[in-house]
Amino acid sequence: MLRSLLPALSLALVLIAIAWLNPRAISYFGFSLMLNLAIPIALATIAQMFVIAGNELDLSIGTFVGFVGCVTATWLKDAPLLGVVILLGSIGVYALLGALIHLRNLPSIVVTLGMSFVWQGLAILILPKPGGKAPDWLLALMAFKPPFIPFPIIAALLIAAVVHFGLMRTSYGVILRGSGGNSAALKRAGWSLLRTKIALFALTGLFGVLSGMALIGITTSADANIGNGYTLLSIAGVILGGGEFVGGRVSPIGAVIGALTLALAASPLLTFMHIPPDWQVAANGAILIIVLAARVLISRRER
């Protein structure tokens, strides 16, 4: 019980700290600003969660987000049809990777590490220097101001609800998680492990694309290196949200909350604490370690 509450608890703690340090941040305007960059992180975390559900790891999600960003800021605006084809094609590449990893029994860390350089290289080819512009509809969507509840919160709820329903409440969702939990049993029951792996990787690609588009909708313009930090953030988000590296134990709601916590702890909290500049970089890392360590400690005590 405590285990599933933990992500929400750590988010609440970070929010209380922020409210105490800077009451002005706890407002409609404040949440819109603080959380809007958490949406792409949450989407990337969900993407990572799908591969982790299948006992794999994706080290290329960060550069993939950057690649999608570059496509979004160039082709998706100037030639929408071509842009859509490229983005769908890149999801197809992810599905193929899943098949390759399964058929040749390759370690996903090696394959995706290699792919991270491929995506990075393609991104630099598309945008050799920073620039481009997000399509207007995307800008309008990300700047949407609904009444009462800030857009990032609605988006986070929506992402969590949709993925939670799909992965935790449908029968195929159970199969997908089962491929990580007990693949032997699944195989004996007649399910194709190749198909589940392809599905998991394609879903990763899909949410990677959504993450890149959301990011460009906020920043308005792209940079080939824009997503590089997302690889490790997304892994940390999944773990913080109650996921495990093996066994198909993941939680979509937890992952979204984990991503929000990371986004808030790393940047707003740090800025509001007024740490001397020489220590800021180290403090950022320290906060991440403390938050993750607390999660590991509590879940260990439960066992």
Binding site: A25, D223, P268
Partner: peptide, 30 residues
């Protein structure tokens, strides 16, 4: 050196109520 980190930082500085921001930016456009 990431762009999203600095973008988030600028947004936090807005919330902090600063009157001016002097910036050495990670990217000219993003």
């Amino acid at each position: 050196k990431e762009v999203p980190t600095q973008a988030a930082q600028v947004q936090n500085l807005i919330l902090q109520g600063y009157d001016a921001i002097v910036i050495n930016a990670a990217s000219p456009d993003a």
